[in-house]
């Protein structure tokens, strides 16, 4: 009798095991998942990245750009183009409270960028200034867990009041295993799908999860930008001073 009971229990455990992620998803709310996403993306104290951007148009023609980017915490980010020659030195600085500067070497000036301009294309890529800025999925969005499928949470994020990102809605696919966002759909102000970001080759480097490859597709223009991570350094002790106009114009 005892043996029979143990077998039944084992069978029940085996049958219900595949449903564990669903049960897990039911345990976590959308807000909690986003908090985990945010803490994962902003886990390093600071990071320095060298990125290669490949722009591919609808005819398959490619253009390559190189960019260095630094980030500290979740509020400070700065980037600068290394190539091509026509865009070398163009830089951006993202600060808290939606303060955003662009450095234009041709004019030798730092220019403040209006909030809505941040949703415009950054130097011809499919990433907007906003996309390149720090990602805060918990503060500017009201979220809803749509479903959990294939080891992924699917979240719907609606722009909260005062959200000026230029997007009305985001759909996020988040890994149930490590909470890294795998795919994001961006919807414009008319609630029409405009861009899709996919993260590939997610690996742990120096203890932090990083996507080695990102692809942003503009589905309206049939144009895409692939971003390859060439070099990365974490926790190098960047000071807040590195994220000022002083350093942007260097």
């Amino acid at each position: 009798m005892m043996r029979k009971t143990c077998c039944i229990l084992l069978l029940i455990i085996c049958l219900t095991f595949p449903l564990c992620p669903v049960l897990k998803s039911q345990e976590l709310t959308a807000k909690e998942i986003l908090e985990k996403v945010n803490s994962l993306l902003n886990a390093p104290q600071d990071q320095k990245l060298t990125l290669k951007l490949v722009l591919i148009d609808k005819n398959g023609q490619e253009e390559t750009r190189e960019l260095i980017m630094m980030q500290k915490g979740k509020d400070l980010r700065m980037g600068k183009f290394l190539s091509p020659a026509s865009q070398r030195g163009i830089g951006f600085l993202s600060l808290p409270n939606d303060v955003f500067y662009v450095y234009m070497p041709a004019f030798k000036k730092t220019q403040r960028i209006a909030t809505r301009q941040k949703s415009g294309k950054f130097a011809g890529t499919d990433f907007s200034y906003q996309d390149l800025g720090t990602q805060q999925y918990d503060e500017k969005w009201s979220s809803r867990l749509v479903r959990a499928e294939n080891e992924q949470y699917v979240l719907e994020l609606q722009a909260a009041k005062g959200n000026d990102t230029g997007y009305s809605q985001l759909i996020l696919w988040v890994s149930t295993e490590n909470f890294y966002p795998l795919k994001i759909e961006f919807y414009d102000q008319h609630n029409k799908l405009c861009k899709v970001l996919t993260n590939h080759k997610i690996q742990k480097i120096a203890g932090y999860l990083v996507a080695q490859e990102m692809e942003m597709v503009d589905v309206i223009k049939n144009h895409k930008t692939k971003m390859f991570l060439e070099e990365v350094e974490f926790d190098t002790g960047l000071s807040d001073e590195s994220f000022t106009e002083r350093y942007l114009s260097r």
């Binding site: 220019q111 403040r112 960028i113 209006a114 909030t115 809505r116 301009q117 000026d164």
Partner: peptide, 9 residues
């Protein structure tokens, strides 16, 4: 003076 308000610089 330089600033931004909504969509305007």
């Amino acid at each position: 003076l330089a600033g931004a308000y909504g969509g305007l610089g």
